[in-house]
Design a protein around this nucleic acid. Sequence first.
DNA 1: TCGATCTTCTAGATCGTTCTAGAAAAACGA
DNA 2: TCGTTTTTCTAGAACGATCTAGAAGATCGA
Lengths: 346, 346
Amino acid sequence: MAGVTLKTVAQAVGVSPSTVSNAYNKPDQLSTALRERILATAQELGYAGPDASARALRSGKAGAIGVLFTDKLSYAFSDPYAVGFLAGLAEVAEEFSTSLLLMPLSSADIVGGSNAVQQAAIDAAAIFCVPGDHPAVDILSARGIPTVSTDRGDHPDLCWVAIDEVEAAAKLGQHLTRLGHRDIVVLVDKAEAQARDGVVELNFDEVGCSDCESRIQGLEKAMPDARMRIVSGGYNSFGSGLKGAEYVLDSQDRPTAIVGLSDVQALGAMEAMKVRGLIPGRDLTVAGFDDIPAAEPAGLTTVHQPIKDKGRAVGRILLDPATTDRQVLMPTELVVRASSGPAPRR
Amino acid sequence: MAGVTLKTVAQAVGVSPSTVSNAYNKPDQLSTALRERILATAQELGYAGPDASARALRSGKAGAIGVLFTDKLSYAFSDPYAVGFLAGLAEVAEEFSTSLLLMPLSSADIVGGSNAVQQAAIDAAAIFCVPGDHPAVDILSARGIPTVSTDRGDHPDLCWVAIDEVEAAAKLGQHLTRLGHRDIVVLVDKAEAQARDGVVELNFDEVGCSDCESRIQGLEKAMPDARMRIVSGGYNSFGSGLKGAEYVLDSQDRPTAIVGLSDVQALGAMEAMKVRGLIPGRDLTVAGFDDIPAAEPAGLTTVHQPIKDKGRAVGRILLDPATTDRQVLMPTELVVRASSGPAPRR
DNA sequence: TCGATCTTCTAGATCGTTCTAGAAAAACGA
DNA sequence: TCGTTTTTCTAGAACGATCTAGAAGATCGA
């Protein structure tokens, strides 16, 4: 049963292994009659096509691109933003009949030798929301694997597809300033924050995520006179946004606006308001980032970025030889919805 | 620069290739001093460890398991149910330092030879919400790749991790019967449904998804006297549930309860009610399936199933030699929340 | 001191393909 | 009819590792 190889089929048909290989990969290199005879015999013998590993070794193409994710995989997918990115990437991958290999980043065994990043048979890799100084990134570069990051790197020779985070945040900041907001809370994700029911207040230098830092800088730039507090409810998720906002809303010192650095967190904040009978845009302003699909029905003011296109662009750079871009800056757009309104007079 | 192999390193150090290989894979087979010398030289030469494809070929282990998804990848991830499953699977994969290979099922090129399912270098595969008679499943079995399905198969020798769909639906049906509901609408996903603003009414034999069919059967079993209509708003998503429910709510012939065959669709239905000023559980009953994280805050009555455990169980069967189970039936539980209430008198 | 055991390392086959070069046969143009 | 091109097929060497068996030297107990 087992052990049927190209050679087996070749012998059965009475041709050379090369010919059988061609029957699968280069149909125009042999006569149709022979090709059909080969395929039929293969079927009979239970041969299911060339072995993937052997093909990968010989041809030097693994037929898969890796996707490096932040932290645990579970949290990665809880944000529709990641899903949209992946969908765009998958679209291009499909076009080049390439698979996507998810590489979970258990922070633990990265240092040890036997992790997925070391072992993975991939031609290239997309680095999604993983900081450029992460050990896994070094491993990939040591392996000589081409990578595209979604962080806008400082190295001019690295590949990336990104948005101008500072500018994007500044757009939102200007909007808030114009509405008269001078006292805001920024919700960030911070896995380490698990004290005080999982909610913690941070200083800027404790944020530790370059995207988040850039966005905060953008907000500060556009709101120079505002008081700005940074609060984390834990992970980048609806629940954490909810918890963070609850902490803020139940405190004695409410801001006039809450900005989630991702839409899921902002939506959590809206939920917290709803529970307390507060109306977003009237009693308190809420805004987010990314413009995920759920943002529109919820009426959430946010900064739109072309999520799926970002995934597509990464895919093109990695797979499409016709694409010569190495660094792509995507446009962003402020989308004003009902959740933002003028700051109430004090 | 390029072309640094085991052999190169071996020559540089002055040992045999086998020894270098052992330095990476079997540290106890050589002296510590030599091992360190080898690793240091490798570093110097820019050798990043054994080539993944070559290792896969020789050792017969690809170091990855495939995940077969329904339809386009984008829709697959729009349901948190899939995300939960994947998280559980990833958890086990991580433990065995194995990667996950996503195999999108573009219905088009399955017949052609050059699709991901044919090419993928995987040791095993998880078949997630793909019917057992799908061509891709045949390809996997032809390749001799062990699989575990999330559909409860009829074949006694196939591996699966599933719930008793009929029983699960019957639990919900009993609940609705007890509340006096005799007229319900079931929301199903049906990609082909794009007429009439994407909303369409179906007969039972048009549903064409074995899970959905089982759930409808379970409902019918527990609600023998009820009138039951089947409506689809398109894909398995919030938006489709919303559209389907809008169609139902705006018709002259409203039911007393709407059952979404997935929570995302049921949540969409709740949204449609909210927009119309209807209160779930009072004006109309809404219920779902799966008990995704968003179901609880929304107060959605649903049938809980251990999503993440399902993923874990699949992972164990595929990867853990200590696991001898071949077929696992997971428990389900009716979770009653505010969205279900007694049927109003007519 | 001698055989037995353990540690450390090596030679060479092997995994199942695809690739390069080229041979044999068929088709073609003049 | 003869060289030339095209089609169709093949031999044999890679690809880069791991595995099996076994050799050489070190260690050990009696």
